[in-house]
Write a protein that binds this DNA or RNA. Structure first.
Length: 572
RNA sequence: GGUGGGGUAGCUCAGCUGGUUAGAGCGCAGGACUCAUAAUCCUGAGGUCGGGAGUUCAAGUCUCCCUCCCACUACCA
């Protein structure tokens, strides 16, 4: 099925370090990237799937303080939790790193000094709110006060929630710290580095307009920002937790004690840093993936992210890479997702709305979540999660259509044919039908996966499973068993090979159940790749098969009722 | 306010550059089958494609107006 092997670099947007992510985060970047990576591996391509935690910034500092931990210790713990959550959902990262690692720090400082030498970084003085009580500068959103436009008393420093106007925190009337509530705040002048994105807008626009494989969601967001005019961004912050600021020679920068690079400058650089960490742990060659002068020319780089991340991946990070003047690999294709909503509303950590990865895995196995979330991926628009639809996905698609198919054919083979693939008989019209059906649908499914059209790919996979049930109804080996055992043998043989095929195609999506199916059927490793030539004879006559243990437990109405109550699903 | 995405069968959604009786899954109704986790298979009912106007031989599919929902709006990631 696959032509010449490709080399595919895959990254999913870095999950922020604070806490375990909710289902929306999972469905919007890590899970689709994982499935895409698994598909491409099965197709025989060389894949490197990199992700990492994004650890710097104010929220991490504040959360650590609240937990009474040092930021470092807090991040260590959260990193472990995210590793566990990722493993629980079978995310097949080639490397899951941390933006707080040494490699990312060195790269960030490198880019900073190179960009400054290229005239793309300069120091400017700005006004920031400093809280004496908290002993820190406050990011815009952590300053609250009275809106100068509408008089709303709890306006945030970046925007007023009442009138919607964008604000500058220094304009707030009676400002106070949202961290401590203290009104002992003052405005101080502070020096920061600015990345002169405006000077790059011409090159960026040429580059963006030259892209042919970006989805409209990505292109339109990027062009919108370019049309409005890129603003120069401050890339440093008054924080302790982060990467120290350097000058154009890479030396510690005078006057920048207590300042670090802004998370959004270093976070995407962590894609490269994490790859370097991967390389040093696995004796891999990171330059072969990231440097076009070191073999990355033929790499296809695919990024997965939520729509909120598009601008950073299409403009900010490319500014860093292109502005360096060095031969870095730029993204080729992006897949941007909308949001998974919780009964139409937003998932919210603070209000405990929604389900988080660690909770989800206690309710249902990872396969169930993987299937449901991506079968209903928020591709065209936001997609609502409801318990009822989750139940339908699991019970109907997985338990009934796939699980029951595998169960019925393997049980039947066990009871009537001694648990071996029977020989004898001649294929006929029913077999021709199902072979044609599969031959038609399989390439479409693969094409949809290749195009990262997950809903369509999943619908096709389900249709392939359903074709197995339809085939068994048509062939009905049980009606032939007594009068014409050979006729029955044809049906069972085909049925078992269909089950093997279903296991093979299910691997990237529901890896655990797929392994159970393939193990029970004794499918050898070299027949598990996505190379479907001769699939109908993959299991030869005489090959021993067993019925797997129950593949998918059904979700009962009582479960739904309990979960709905526990998670306040739908209730506003 | 600006920008973007939506408003298509009861529900969740497909419908590319306009063209025969608008599709899928779930749900529902009827039937078939009995190998299987009361699973499966078939058939059927169900939509004036948010509202209005326009362009066209022809519009869910293009243009304009109106309306409703959602997201984003750059120092929160």
């Amino acid at each position: 099925m696959s032509d010449t092997p490709k080399r595919i670099l895959i990254t999913s947007a870095l999950p922020y370090i604070n806490g375990v992510k909710h289902l929306g985060n999972l469905a919007g970047s890590m899970l689709p990237a994982d499935i895409y990576a698994r598909v491409q591996r099965l197709l025989g391509h060389e894949v490197l799937y990199i992700c990492a935690t994004d650890e710097h910034g104010t929220p991490a500092e504040l959360a650590a303080a609240e937990a009474g931990l040092s930021v470092k210790v807090y991040c260590d713990r959260m990193y472990e939790a995210q590793c566990e959550a990722g493993a629980a959902f079978d995310l097949s990262y080639d490397w899951f790193g941390r933006s707080s690692g040494d490699a990312t720090a060195a790269l960030t400082q490198h880019f900073s000094s190179v960009l400054e030498r290229n005239g793309l970084i300069e120091a400017r003085t700005s006004k920031q709110v400093y809280s004496n009580a908290d002993g820190r500068y406050l990011p815009d959103r952590y300053v609250e006060g009275t809106c100068p436009n509408c008089g709303f008393e709890k306006a945030r420093g970046d925007q007023c929630d009442n009138c919607g106007k964008l604000l500058d925190p220094v304009d707030l009337i009676d400002p106070y710290s949202a961290v401590s509530g203290s009104r002992d705040v003052e405005i101080r002048e502070t020096e920061h580095l600015y990345l002169k994105q405006s000077e790059m807008s011409g090159r960026l626009r040429d580059w963006v307009e030259g892209q042919t494989s970006w989805p409209p969601l990505a292109t339109s967001i990027a062009l919108k920002w370019l049309d409005e005019g890129l603003r120069d961004r401050s890339i440093t912050r008054d924080l302790e937790w982060g990467i120290p600021v350097v000058d154009e020679n890479g030396d510690p920068r005078p006057g920048f004690d207590g300042k670090v690079y802004y998370v959004w400058f270093d976070a995407p650089i962590a894609y490269i840093g994490a790859t370097q960490d991967w390389a040093s742990e696995t004796s891999g060659d990171w330059g072969r993936w990231w440097r076009t002068d070191q073999g990355a020319d033929d790499v296809e780089y695919v990024q997965f992210m939520g729509k909120d991340n598009v601008a950073f991946h299409t403009l900010s990070f490319p500014t860093t890479l292109m502005g360096s003047g060095e031969p870095w690999k730029l993204v080729d294709t992006l897949k941007a997702f909308n949001w998974v909503t919780w009964y139409g509303g937003k998932f919210s950590t603070s209000q405990k709305r929604g389900v988080f990865m660690d909770q989800a895995i206690d309710l249902a196995p990872s396969d169930a979540w993987r299937w449901h979330l991506m079968a209903n991926a928020p591709e065209g628009s936001d997609a609502a999660f409801t318990w009822e639809e989750f139940q339908t996905s699991v019970n109907s698609d997985l338990a009934n259509v796939l699980g029951n198919f595998v169960n019925r054919i393997t049980k039947y083979a066990g009871s009537k044919f001694d648990g071996v693939v029977p020989e004898g008989g001649v294929s006929g019209g029913h077999e021709d039908w199902v072979i044609a059906e599969i031959g038609h649908r399989l390439p479409m499914m693969i094409a949809h996966f290749d195009a990262r059209e997950f809903r369509k790919a999943f619908a096709e996979m389900r249709a392939i499973w359903a074709a197995g049930n339809e085939y068994l109804t048509r062939a009905a080996p049980w009606t032939h068993y007594k009068a014409d055992p050979d006729q029955a043998a044809v049906g069972v043989r085909m049925g078992l090979n269909l089950a093997a095929l279903f296991g093979v195609i299910a691997q990237p999506v529901i890896p655990r159940a797929a392994s159970k199916i393939l193990d029970a059927l004794g499918v050898p490793d070299d027949r598990r790749r996505w190379d479907f030539d001769g699939w109908a004879d993959a299991l030869p006559a005489g090959h021993a098969v067993a019925a797997p243990d129950m593949l998918f437990a059904k979700i009962e109405d009582t479960d739904i009722a309990e979960w709905t109550e526990r998670f306040e699903g739908g209730g506003e």
